[in-house]
Structure formats: C-alpha cells, structure tokens
C-alpha cells in the first residue's frame, strides 16, 4: 500500500466522520441527500460481497466493515431517527435513482472484466460510485446557506477519489501489469464531477466567505 492509497482511504473515512458529526452535532441532516447516501450504501454492499470469502488484509476487512456499518448508520439516522428524519429535505432531494442505477447496471452487463455474477456486480458498484454524488450536488445547489461541515464532507469525498488517481499512477509504475481501465476511467469521471464544486469550495475558503453554489 502506498501513501496515496492510504491518504485516500483516510480522507474517505474522515468524510464519514464529518458527516456523522454534522448530523449528530446539529441533530439535523439538512442539505444531505438521502438518495446519495442510499446509493453509496448500495455501492458498498455490491462491492464488498466478497467480505467473508476473499481475505486480503486485516486493514481491508476492517475498512470494509467500517464503511458498511457507517453507511447503514447514516441511513438509520436520516430515515429512522425521530428528531433527525424530520430535517431531511425531502422536497428538494428529487433526483431519480433509476437515471443512475439503470445505466450503470446496463454498462456493467456490457463492459466488465469477467462474466461472473460477482465480477459484474462489483463492476456495477464501480460505475455507480462514480455518479452517486450527483443527487448530493444537485441538492447542494438548491440549498441556501450550506453549512461548513456539509461543504467539508463533499470536499473530502471528492478528494478521496482524486488521491486514488495518484495511487493508480503510482501502482502503474511500480507494479508490473497493473492496468485497470474500468476503475481508472470511472475514477476519473467521478473526480471530474467534483471539479465545479472544488472551484467554489476553494474560492469561498480563500475569500473566507460562506460556500454558495451558483444556481
């Protein structure tokens, strides 16, 4: 494991911490897209199907369990917690799941490395992760007064995949035969989706003003 991969994972982990912190500290999930959270949970469930059958390292197994556990915990807070669930922006969070899930499922059926159920479902999770942030970005654009923790959460999520790109470049040059077209292209698409957000996030940080996305 190289430093970029580790940094990427830690930033990813931190994004969960920031999100749970925001929801718990403010007892509110205002500005957070339940749809994106549900899509991420689906991503992790599909990707970590091999959790108990394919052991890579203690680190990997632990992180997978933490990501799954945290995702379900966030879903519980947003859907089941009686104080928090009423703060959910149901009317604003209107992105349709099918517009993302269906094309990703079709693409996974068409483009994959091996025609096995496990591999196709895993590939679907890679495609879906790339676009799962879209409902959140749409909601952010509609939300006036984005709070700092929500802005930081989205920034960390974007940064995580950016660091993975550096990890893939590193691995390409250090590991023989390390070619991962599906993951690389999806990861680049995923990072590109954040570029507009990064621009406004960094601008607001430099000018020391509250983050606001132009609508």
């Amino acid at each position: 494991m190289n430093i970029f991969r580790l940094a990427g994972d830690m930033v990813h982990l931190l994004s969960f911490v920031v999100l749970v912190l925001k929801i718990n500290a403010t007892k509110s999930c205002r500005g957070i897209s339940l749809k994106t959270q549900e899509l991420y949970t689906l991503v992790f469930v599909c990707r970590y199907l091999d959790l108990f059958s394919n052991f890579i390292s203690m680190y990997n197994t632990t992180m997978k369990i933490v990501f799954l556990g945290t995702s379900f915990a966030i879903l519980y807070l947003m859907r089941g917690h009686k104080v928090i669930k009423v703060t959910y922006d149901r009317e604003q969070d209107t992105f349709r799941y099918l517009f993302l899930v269906l094309p990703c499922a079709l693409l996974a059926l068409l483009i994959h490395n091996a025609w096995t159920p496990f591999e196709v479902v895993w590939t679907f999770s890679i495609y879906l992760e790339a676009v799962a942030i879209l409902p959140q970005l749409v909601l952010l654009q509609r939300t006036q007064n984005i709070d700092n923790l929500t802005g930081n959460y989205v920034f960390l999520l974007g940064l995580y995949r950016g660091l993975y790109i550096l990890n893939w470049i590193y691995r390409y040059f250090t590991e023989p035969h390390y070619i991962q077209w599906i993951v690389w292209i999806s990861g680049i698409v995923q990072t590109i989706l954040y570029l507009d957000f990064f621009y406004y996030y960094i601008k607001s940080w430099k000018n020391n003003v509250k983050l606001a996305l132009p609508s």
């Binding site: 990813h12 091999d50 890579i56 990997n60 993975y164 990890n167 599906i182």
Partner: peptide
C-alpha cells in the same frame, strides 16, 4: 492474484 483484479482496493 488480487492486485491483478483491482479487488484489493476499497
């Protein structure tokens, strides 16, 4: 080998 399939990443 796991690194050949990319399944060693999260």
């Amino acid at each position: 080998k796991s690194s050949a399939t990319g399944h060693d990443e999260l």
